[in-house]
Each structure stands twice: as structure tokens, then as C-alpha cells.
Design a binder for these strands. Structure first.
Lengths: 85, 85, 85, 85
DNA sequence: TCAGATAAAATCGCGC
DNA sequence: GCGCGATTTTATCTGA
């Protein structure tokens, strides 16, 4: 049946796992690259924290952004907070 | 020297570690309580995600909130984005 | 309806948020206590970094027991066995 | 100076953000690939949940080796030994 | 859709 | 003070 004797195709399983581990490794490398860019941007005077927020906002549609801002406003108003925006 | 024979006061060390582990356990219990409250709030129609944002905003001073919003605006404007707020 | 009169029950929302913030505050206090103990231990000659490792290992041992049981369950399930626990 | 004329170098900022977003997109693509492999494996009879456990254990084993060396280092350091590696 | 698990991100403390 | 590593918190994803 296979190398083992328990009905599990170890070779096939190992191929899947190797492929996954390779991809995960590539993801880690890309994450490192991203970190480097943030560091570089910081070195030229940009605020990485704000950059992250901008990027998060860009991932959402304009509608989604507006809706979330509206909800924040509603909740903040109900709590009588001054949100500052 | 001490109970052991390697220069480390095991009894003293254990006392420290027991105290820390007890406090960590209490922290875990509180974290569970928080999770329960979010679930309860969700059950009555509130959006936990927005609640988290509100709580995060409340942790900052009004000035800090305004300054961050201003930076977001500056960056967004430089990118010609419409932020929606 | 509430201060904001916008359909959000501010009183109810505030009650939830107050409860959460209170619990978070207690968590912070406990975290400070933990930090103090590490500082105290450091002051008496113990290395906090090693202490953290020790505590992590103790926790890992506990987790390992739980995980062992879970893995048994998983494998048993994958093999369509009824383990009975 | 830029589109916004507010003191933020939009062109420079945009270049950084574009690079980051491109890398994040690649990360997402890799994550999708991983997801596909899990799905494919599932289709051939493997249990993805167990596979994840296996991979976590393999990673943990690698980490464990690193940690063992680190603990050696830590304890050696705590004892003011020169290990030479 | 929702809870539970997994992964990503932000935060914090340390050492240089 | 700044980057780095570790912890904690937040968001995403899978399966019921």
C-alpha cells in the first residue's frame, strides 16, 4: 500500500507538507521585506504607524470606509465622545 | 549555600515563580470575562469590532486623537485618497 | 432615547464599555504586579529572562498534556475510531 | 511639491506604499496557494486539521532545537561561563 | 452565520 | 534612542 503499514500514503502526505512549508517560508521572507521597507520609510521621515493605517484604509472600499466611520461616529456620539474627526 | 548545590536558591526562586503564575492565572480569568462581555454586547446588537475601536480611541487623549486624524488626513491627501471622514 | 438620539442606546453601550475598561484596568494592574515581581527577583540576583523561560516551559508542559489528548482525539477521529473519552 | 501641497512628499510616500502593497499582495497569493494545497490534500483524503498539527509539530521541533541551544546559552550566561559557541 | 482555531499586527521590554 | 525579540491583542479563516 505504501511505505508504512497503516493505510496512510506517507509519500503523498510528505509532498503536500513540503509544498506548504516551502510556501510558508516564502511568506516569511516577504514579511521581512515589508519590515525593511517600513524601516526605510521611517528613515526618510515617514511615520510607519500612520502608513499602516493608510494601507489598511486603502484595502477597504470607499463605501466600507465611510460606513465604518459612520458607525464610529454613532457609537462615539452615543457615548458623548469628541472623536476629533 | 542553599537547598540545591549549584548556587541557585531554589526555594526563593520557586516563591517568585508561584506568585507570577498565580497572577498570570488571574489575568487569564479576566481576559475570559472580557470576552464574555463582548459576546453579551454582540447578543444585544452592538458591533464588537466598533466597540474595540471606541475603547482604543478612549485610551488616547482628545489631543492625540486629533493629531493622529490630522496626520492621516495629510498622508491621505498626499496620496489623493478620499478617506470618507 | 439617549444623549445622541441617533438610535444607539448609549446608556447600554456605556455600561458594557465601562465593564470592559474596568476589567482591562485590572489586567493592567496584574501585569504591573508581575513586572514588579520580575524586577524584585532581578534585584535579588535572578535572571528574569531565564525565569520567563522556566515559566514558559512549565506552561508548555501543561499545554503538552492537553495537546497530547487532543492529538489522540484527532488521529482517532481521522481513523473513524470511537475513543470513548 | 505634490498633489496635496501640504508638506508631505506624496510621490515618495506613494512609492513606499506601492512597494509594500505589492509585497502584501504576493503574501496573499502565497497564502491562497497554501489554502489550495490544503483543499487538494483534503480532496485526496487527508485531514487538513491534522496536517496543520503535523506542520506545527515539525516547526516546534525546529524551534525546540534552537531553544535548547538558547537555554544552554542562557544558563551558561547566568553562571558566567564562557561556552565558546 | 457564528464560534473556535490560525495567523497577522501592535505593543512592550530588553540590550546595544 | 533604536532596533530586536517576545508577548499580547486583533483580524482572518475554516468548519459546523
Amino acid at each position: 500500500m505504501n511505505g508504512g503499514s497503516n493505510g496512510v500514503d506517507g509519500g503523498h502526505l510528505k509532498a503536500f507538507i513540503d509544498r506548504i512549508e516551502k510556501l510558508e517560508e516564502e511568506k516569511r521572507a516577504l514579511a521581512d521585506d515589508v519590515k525593511d521597507i517600513y524601516a526605510e520609510a521611517k528613515g526618510t521621515g515617514f511615520d510607519p504607524k500612520i502608513m499602516r493605517k493608510i494601507i489598511a484604509l486603502r484595502k477597504k472600499s470607499a463605501d466600507a470606509r465611510a460606513e465604518e466611520a459612520e458607525l464610529l461616529r454613532l457609537y462615539g456620539d452615543a457615548l458623548q465622545m469628541t472623536l476629533g474627526f
